[in-house]
Every structure is written in structure tokens, then in C-alpha cells.
């Protein structure tokens, strides 16, 4: 088997591929995500974002003061379409207590 160092196992993105993207002039968390697909798999970046940022810091592509993760959107946990659909059409909740 080929020897690879993985950063993102969901989308199979390796250190070498991220370095390739950096060599192409891409350097931010968002750019690397869009180019390689890193962070777009079932875990939504929970496992890989730290390894990515460490790599970008080591390559001096980002600074610790300015670096930000990619946008966090629902769902942060798995949910089925049937479950989501069960909420659709329910009346808005009453005002809080």
C-alpha cells in the first residue's frame, strides 16, 4: 500500500495534497477546503481542522492571531431527512417563558 499521511480521512486529503495546494498559491483554511474537499465529509471537519491549521501555521500560510475555522452550519450531528421533514410545517413556537 502507498504511504500517505492523512489530515482528513473522510475525504482522503493528505499532507502532500495540501502542500500542493499551498504551492499553487492557496493558503487559507477556506481555500484549502474548497480546493481539496477537506472537512466536507461525514465528520464536517471535526477531526481534521486542527491538523490543517497546524500545517498552515508551519508553512507560514496563516498566523495564529488571524486564523479562523471554516463556517459552522447545521447539522453538527447526523440527522435524517425524515426527522428534519417532521418539523417542517409545525407552527412557530409560542413566546418563551
Amino acid at each position: 500500500m502507498t504511504q500517505r499521511v492523512f489530515v482528513c480521512r473522510c475525504e482522503d486529503v493528505t499532507v502532500a495534497e495540501i502542500q500542493h495546494a499551498i504551492a499553487l498559491g492557496l493558503g487559507s483554511v477556506e481555500e484549502i477546503k474548497r480546493y481539496t474537499g477537506l472537512g466536507t465529509g461525514p465528520c464536517q471537519g471535526k477531526e481534521c481542522i486542527v491538523a490543517l491549521v497546524r500545517l498552515l501555521l508551519a508553512e507560514r500560510a496563516v498566523t495564529p492571531e488571524a486564523v479562523q475555522p471554516f463556517t459552522a452550519r447545521p447539522p453538527a450531528e447526523p440527522v435524517t431527512l425524515a426527522e428534519l421533514a417532521s418539523v417542517a410545517g409545525t407552527p412557530p413556537p409560542e413566546d418563551g417563558p
Binding site: 500517505r4 499521511v5 492523512f6 489530515v7 499532507v15 481534521c48 500545517l55
Partner: peptide, 12 residues
């Protein structure tokens, strides 16, 4: 917190 991957050869 969550557990994260550590870069190593064949860490998958």
C-alpha cells in the same frame, strides 16, 4: 473536546 487525527504515515 473532540479527538483529532495525528499526522503519521498511514494514520488511516
Amino acid at each position: 473536546t473532540r479527538d483529532v487525527i495525528v499526522p503519521l504515515r498511514n494514520n488511516d
